[in-house]
Design a protein around this nucleic acid. Structure first.
Lengths: 207, 207
DNA sequence: CGGCGCGAGTAGACAGTGTCTACTCGATCT
DNA sequence: AGATCGAGTAGACACTGTCTACTCGCGCCG
């Protein structure tokens, strides 16, 4: 309701132009003036809707988080339904799908992925952005909890394991994005490293 | 031999000024003109020694990689000597020290850490930079190989496990750097997550 | 019904940036 | 001594983000 698509909603048009520019040219092309140019308005126009360049970028990043959520199948409150199954094997399969989806998103939309986690660019609006990615993390935690019930006393809490897993996935995305992964392992195949990651954090695959 | 510290080596002075500026003000302050100002020369002077701004930043990042290597105790060819011990427990201890050192570096010199892995800024000179971090990765692989000898046929190769571990450490550094780790786990304590990471990739601590 | 205000977009100015080019100046070599 | 050349200077240029007048069109209220 806050942002309408009513044909002349410049705010939405600017975000859309930014998303397109980001996909076509990359993050370096996302200057305030270039986005305005792409949207067909003067360079001062965005100021009516975004106080600063960083706020416009933050809005574009927010759009990206939305796309990521739908790509992972957890738009709206669907996360609760998605974690309804209490079967450990099912949770494991869903976690693998999430991991693959996360890395696929990073690979297919590298510009958007880069922007979404460039907290220096999104500074100020960063707090809101960080909160945006929390639902995803909570789903991760719930699924991990199904696999690793916190029985042992010295066993790490599900949130801890989920944080370690998330960090691992994110690091993998970055390493591959800039080619270090291929340089290190010889081949740039992601699958073996991803499998090793999942096996490490979730225990060997029950297959 | 290539770069001398002979009092008037502007190249070295520019790098030094950049390092200082990076520690004091952060990455955003590392403009070409500001570095030149800090070094007491005109804004055109750096061009004699660095063809472009990115090359100067790459030189500063290279300095950072050197500092990281010495902080981890693997300057020069000392890596080989450091991995001489074939005791698994010793390898595990050394890996833990490496992990702590890596994350401590990221925490104590956040600006430098950010620059070192901002491959969009270092583009072009990036290939050389990526190679700079390879010795560190090789030490990681060797140590992992001591703990996880590649016996099983479906077992991941040491390089694969090392890559997954590296990705995990790097992701942890980033998540903590921008505060998401604290937001996710409730407390911003790094140790539990780091312990979970090490246990996951290297097996539970033999303690 | 008419003047009025005001939100939205325009145009220009300003400081700052990276890059490029003309130029100076001092040391070095023949 | 005089020419050469590397190193640093100064200025221009095309950008950028931000700020400030200004215009214009629509709706509101007396």
């Amino acid at each position: 309701m806050t942002e309408q698509d009513n044909a002349t909603g410049l705010r939405a048009r600017l975000v859309a132009a930014g998303v397109e520019l980001l996909a076509l040219e990359g993050l370096h092309a996302l200057t305030l003036r270039e986005i305005a140019r792409q949207a067909g308005v003067s360079h001062g126009a965005p100021r009516r809707h975004f106080a600063t360049h960083a706020e416009l970028l933050a809005a574009i990043a927010r759009h990206g988080f939305g796309e990521l959520a739908t790509a992972l199948g957890l738009q709206d409150g669907a996360g609760h339904a998605a974690t309804a199954g209490h079967d450990a094997a099912e949770a494991r399969a869903r976690l693998e799908r999430l991991a693959h989806g996360y890395l696929a998103f990073a690979a297919e939309q590298p510009g958007m992925f880069e922007l979404m986690f460039r907290h220096d660019v999104l500074a100020g609006s960063g707090a809101g952005l960080r909160r945006t990615s929390m639902p995803l993390f909570e789903v991760l935690t719930r699924l991990v909890a199904v696999i690793h019930p916190p029985t042992g006393e010295d066993c790490a809490s599900p949130a801890t394991v989920a944080a370690a897993l998330w960090a691992n996935l994110h690091g993998l995305a970055q390493l591959r994005a800039w080619g270090s992964l291929g340089l290190a392992t010889g081949s740039d195949a992601l699958d073996p490293v991803l499998r090793a990651t999942l096996d490490a954090h979730l225990g060997p695959a029950a297959r």
